[in-house]
Design a protein around this nucleic acid. Structure first.
Lengths: 115, 115
DNA sequence: CCAAAAGTAAGCCAAATGGCTAACTTTCTT
DNA sequence: AAGAAAGTTAGCCATTTGGCTTACTTTTGG
């Protein structure tokens, strides 16, 4: 995936990975602790963790045989910023759009609007 | 994908689709207009549009032979909300985490922290 | 020093994703 | 009525993704 946002959104698109984020938001945890609530095999789960690390959303340090993971702020902030930015732009003309959409809808009385 | 957030993040993970959102934030546009800046084949592009529609991020109405697309607010707002929520939780303890991480790092002087 | 604990590594498989072409439908425009 | 314009359908293909098992390494507790 090309840039920061690509990999970030890609990482967040999976429920397991979002659950890990939610858990880590409450504080750091070991791989096994993070794995416990998920019924998939450990190696499978590890790959989700790896995705999060490669994206920079999660960091980890290994002490002895235990790897402890924690959240990294920057990517989340960037993504939130992008969404906020988009929202600003289109919200500033949302009322106009609604009007426009309604006009088009009325002009096309008996027509398909979906699929 | 299970819930709203899954499909939303999934949709946003593709650069073509994000570009479409960015374009549509500036105002509605026809399929061909949206397609123009992208060098992929039309049918391929159409499938990106379809993903956006199925996710509810984009709506469209067809009048005559032209389909006009516009942005839908709700999903973006929900996603932004989720991110903001996460951020709140973990930012409230970020300083504590930094301290903790540093402690662990020091305890494990000559060890691997990655891979 | 030996076994359990905690990760890692390697490889296999099915389904989903993202790209293509070719052919078809519907709606203008002339 | 003919042809261009704007989508749409269908089907093909390569890569990626997300899941699994089996086997291995490194710590650590007894």
């Amino acid at each position: 995936m090309t840039n920061q946002l690509d990999s970030f959104f890609g990482a967040m698109a999976d429920p397991t990975r979002r659950a890990v984020i939610e858990r880590l938001a409450a504080g750091p945890a070991s791989v096994s602790e993070l794995h416990a609530p998920h019924k998939m095999a450990l190696p499978t789960f590890m790959r989700h963790l790896k995705v999060l690390e490669e994206t920079g959303i999660v960091r980890s340090i290994k002490k002895g045989r235990v790897r402890t993971c924690h959240i990294e702020a920057a990517p989340l902030i960037e993504a939130q910023g992008w969404l906020a930015w988009q929202r600003e732009i289109w919200e500033s003309r949302l009322d106009r759009l609604e009007v426009l959409a309604r006009q088009i809808a009325q002009q096309s009385e008996g027509e398909n609007s979906d699929t």
